[in-house]
């Protein structure tokens, strides 16, 4: 893949095809872990981490095993198996070798084992590969990582707005999730503005 293609892919994953605001994937952690900016950032970093490695591993598995044996219809279940096992494995490795990183990501890692954004990134890689013959391993890793960055951007933006709610004076009926959903939809509309970037 050329540099331009990688750049377009990254920009798309972060802005025009943002996992949360445009594709509506990963809404559960987006609403659940967005009450404070620092926990949202921790969640975002964990998603970047898991999405990157799961994209890499599922891409390899797809080309080396599923396509070779002609069982691509098993993709979803194989991906879930792989991602779940991988996250468990990474968690153990981190706990042993990098306790500091484990402290930062640890509590969020099990939460995103079966997150649909992570599975979505792996499955979308397949679509990307079908559309673009030059799509390769590097593209898959880039898409996973930048998709995670897009997720982090969305959740941190949302959390910083939710923090402001504590000082806002809005009707009692809107307290909690209603106002959060209204805000999420407004943010989503704002991200529609990036559709114009699809010139690449």
């Amino acid at each position: 893949m050329t540099f331009t293609e990688i750049f377009a892919l990254s920009l798309g994953a972060i802005l025009t095809e943002n996992f949360i605001f445009v594709k509506f994937l990963g809404i559960c952690p987006f609403l659940g872990v967005s009450k404070k900016t620092d926990t949202a950032l921790g969640m975002g970093l964990a998603v970047i981490f898991v999405m990157t490695i799961s994209s890499a591993v599922t891409y390899l598995l797809d080309t080396l095993v599923l396509v070779r044996f002609d069982i691509v219809y098993m993709r979803t279940i194989v991906y879930i198996l792989v991602i779940a096992a991988l996250v468990q494995f990474v968690e153990m490795v981190l706990m042993k070798l990098m306790p500091a990183l484990y402290q930062a990501l640890g509590i969020y890692l099990p939460l995103i084992t079966t997150n649909c954004a992570v599975l979505g990134a792996a499955l979308l890689n397949v679509d990307k590969a079908a559309e673009n013959p030059s799509f390769n391993f590097l593209g898959a890793v880039t898409f996973g990582m930048t998709g995670g960055i897009g997720f982090t951007l969305a959740i941190v933006l949302f959390a910083s707005i939710r923090e402001k709610f504590e000082l806002a004076d809005y009707p009692k009926a809107f307290e909690g999730f209603p106002i959060a959903l209204v805000t999420a939809s407004l943010l989503s509309i704002a991200f529609m503005g990036f559709q114009g970037l699809k010139v690449f």
Binding site: V65, L66, I71, V78, L81, V82
Partner: peptide
């Protein structure tokens, strides 16, 4: 057989 063996092997 192929998917069963592949998936079983992966598991």
């Amino acid at each position: 057989l192929i998917p069963v063996i592949t998936l079983g092997g992966l598991g």
